[in-house]
């Protein structure tokens, strides 16, 4: 686009750029920028009840400064939900991406049989939305309908209840792993396929074993893809909502404030406290930015040093 031709025709056509981006810009403003600004605005307001709080003038809004934020950050329910989700992410992201990478490397190594069938089957869960996978896994967890419990009972043993308070976090993480592994596997596999073959040739001539090639050549080559899948997984993790909501009817181990979004939902619609809900939304968005940018910074030097080959 560094054309030196600055004719009027050029400038006239370039103005059409605005026409093409206009619909996206309008949507961006209406459904992203304005809601964020509105959430910021509401998050620093509060409702004051006048007298008995009845009638038109019974309630009015006023400036609250950062009080809603202080309140949310001091709320043991919010802190508890944040802690659970961080732990959930620490389980989910490494296990899911580890499996995705393992499967992608196996698909790429050509030593496994039935690769095509395996690839398609492992990708299949991506077609199942979180709501439906949660209710399917819910039944698989429930002792009354679980095949694992049935087999264990038949053998005279017993299995721990994964919906118990101690294990329910793993039960929820498993749903995420099930749903996300295949998609990430396809992303990493596609990335592996675009690595030039000559690199392997050289490594093989140098006497590297296949495992060494995988770890020292393939993984570093697809590091940018691994990093991006990691960032997207972290963002998705912090928003967990459907899985615990759907498992709730099956167990008493999941409170109405299990995850930060569930707490925000409860604040906004059960307690009618849109001020705390907005402050909570802003905090979760901030935390997401901090964690994903922090992660990118952390790995960046490494990743892009690899790219500068």
């Amino acid at each position: 686009m560094s054309s030196t031709n600055a004719s009027t025709l050029r400038r006239r056509t370039d103005r059409f750029g605005y026409v093409f981006v206009a619909p996206a810009a309008v949507c961006f403003l209406a459904f992203l920028a304005i809601p964020i600004l509105y959430a910021l605005y509401v998050s620093v307001r509060r409702e004051q009840v006048v007298g008995l709080g009845l009638g038109e003038g019974g309630r009015h809004q006023e400036w609250a400064g950062l009080r809603n934020y202080a309140q949310v950050l001091a709320d043991p329910e919010f802190l508890g939900s944040a802690g659970r989700v961080l732990l959930y992410g620490l389980v989910l992201v490494p296990v899911m991406l580890g499996l995705a990478l393992l499967f992608a490397l196996l698909l790429d190594s050509k030593r496994a049989r039935l690769r095509r069938i395996a690839r398609i089957t492992i990708f299949l869960p991506y077609a199942v939305p979180a709501v439906i996978s949660s209710l399917l896994w819910g039944f698989l967890y429930l002792p009354g309908t679980s095949p694992f419990h049935f087999v264990a009972d038949a053998l005279g043993g017993s299995l721990p209840d994964v919906l118990s308070p101690q294990l329910v976090l793993l039960a929820i993480a498993n749903i995420g792993i099930w749903g996300g592994t295949g998609f990430n596997m396809v992303v990493l596999y596609t990335s592996l396929r675009s690595v030039p073959g000559e690199l392997y040739e050289a490594a093989t001539l140098d006497g590297c074993s296949e495992l060494q090639i995988a770890l020292r050549v393939k993984v570093p080559m697809i590091l940018p893809s691994l990093i991006m899948t990691c960032v997207f997984s972290i963002i998705a993790t912090l928003q967990v909502f459907a899985e615990p909501m759907l498992l709730r009817p099956l167990t008493s181990s999941i409170s109405t404030t299990w995850s930060p979004l569930m707490l925000i939902y409860k604040d906004a619609f059960t307690e009618n406290d849109i001020y705390s809900a907005s402050a909570g939304s802003v905090l979760v968005a901030l935390a997401t930015f901090v964690i994903s940018f922090g992660f990118l910074r952390l790995v960046r030097g490494q990743a892009f040093a690899q790219e500068e080959r």
């Binding site: 459904f31 964020i36 928003q239 906004a268 968005a285």
Partner: peptide, 8 residues
Amino acid sequence: PAVILAVP
């Protein structure tokens, strides 16, 4: 995270 926008 788009879901954060749902309430506003």
